[in-house]
């Protein structure tokens, strides 16, 4: 009994410290998506003015592995990400569809004319309905969608060279098989 009285507080301290240590390493901004392996939400988004006449519908995304990218003309990080999207577009490996989130569609269209347009289909989502259906917490966010239209992965923040090479590309290859 005597010895336990000394060891126990130390043991409790060590266990609590380990939890705190782990807690420090977790990123509170990283919220696991509950939509992984779920079908993409029902979409029927109008087009950006002057870009095309179709917009973005659920059926457009199904049929092949694709990326769905959330962007907006107001989004600073999207400007940083954009060259990478253009590069992916050039490789022709995977189609990228865009959702112009919480944006004036005219501004979204102007932004694409200025920065380049890497997208296959783009839908305007001025009132955030599509973004919230995707469980979006910020822009940019990118979803990997498989042939059947199921969300397989969500990347929060800009796609970098590293993330493309190490995470997205291998996954797309695997899903395309």
């Amino acid at each position: 009994m005597g010895r336990i009285a000394y060891i126990l507080p130390v043991a409790v301290f060590v266990v609590v410290s380990l939890f705190f240590l782990r807690g420090l390493q977790l990123d509170p901004k990283h919220i696991p998506s509950v939509l992984i392996d779920k079908p993409i939400p029902e979409l029927n988004l109008p087009p950006l003015p002057g870009r095309d006449e179709v917009g973005l519908r659920t059926a457009d995304i199904k049929g092949q592995v694709s990326l769905v990218n959330i962007f907006g003309s107001w989004c600073v990080a999207c400007v940083a990400e954009h060259p990478m999207l253009l590069k992916i577009r050039k490789t022709g490996i995977v189609p990228i569809h865009g959702i112009d989130w919480r944006d004036d569609p005219a501004k979204g269209a102007a932004w694409l004319r200025k920065n380049g347009d890497p997208y296959d289909r783009v839908g305007a989502d001025p009132d955030s309905h599509a973004a919230i259906d995707f469980g979006v917490t910020g822009a940019p966010e990118t979803f990997v969608v498989d042939r059947e239209g199921h969300i397989r992965y969500k990347h929060v923040g800009p796609i970098t060279e590293e993330i493309w090479e190490d995470t997205l590309l291998p996954m797309i290859k695997e899903l395309s098989r």
């Binding site: 919220i31 696991p32 998506s33 469980g135």
Partner: peptide, 8 residues
């Protein structure tokens, strides 16, 4: 809301 963002 929970369907889209989880219990979080």
């Amino acid at each position: 809301v929970v369907d889209r963002y989880g219990d979080y």
